[in-house]
């Protein structure tokens, strides 16, 4: 089990390092996409058929354990949100946040419509 956990840790640290370097290089002043790089690395390693050790139970168990811990962590995370601050914030903040989310969903909906058209055209 420890092999999977250690591999996961290695991916996270390497990804974070990549994100920090990437952020520095393009001058963002913060790290960019460290977690995203780590995920890409993990997917790459586990999709690589030459790396046989990723199929071993000692590796798989560590990965699947932390994968299944994801939702409990999300629940703990929601319990740490500043909901009181959110509910007592001014209307400008509420409107700005809501507008950003609403517009994103609208864009998705439009894309989704196009998606359907495309599929039907293919048929």
């Amino acid at each position: 089990m420890i092999y999977g956990v250690a591999a996961l840790s290695a991916c996270m640290l390497l990804g974070m390092l990549t994100g920090t370097i990437f952020g520095d290089v393009i001058g963002a002043g913060t790290e960019i996409g460290g977690v995203g790089f780590a995920m890409l690395l993990l997917i790459f390693v586990t999709n690589c058929e030459k790396l046989k050790f990723t199929q071993k139970p000692a590796f798989v168990q560590g990965m699947t354990f932390w994968k299944s811990m994801y939702i409990p962590v999300v629940i703990a995370m929601t319990a740490c949100q500043n909901v009181r601050g959110m509910l007592s914030s001014s209307f400008v903040a509420i409107a700005a946040g809501a507008a950003a989310v609403g517009f994103s969903f609208l864009l998705l909906y439009v894309l989704h419509l196009f998606d359907k058209d495309k599929k039907e055209a293919e048929k």
């Binding site: 996270m12 995920m39 993990l42 997917i43 990965m63 811990m69 962590v73």
Partner: peptide, 21 residues
Amino acid sequence: ILGGSTLRNFTIIASSYGAKM
């Protein structure tokens, strides 16, 4: 700790185990 950024990132990365390249 459980809902903090370290474990959140750790489990998000773990969630990509099984995703298809």
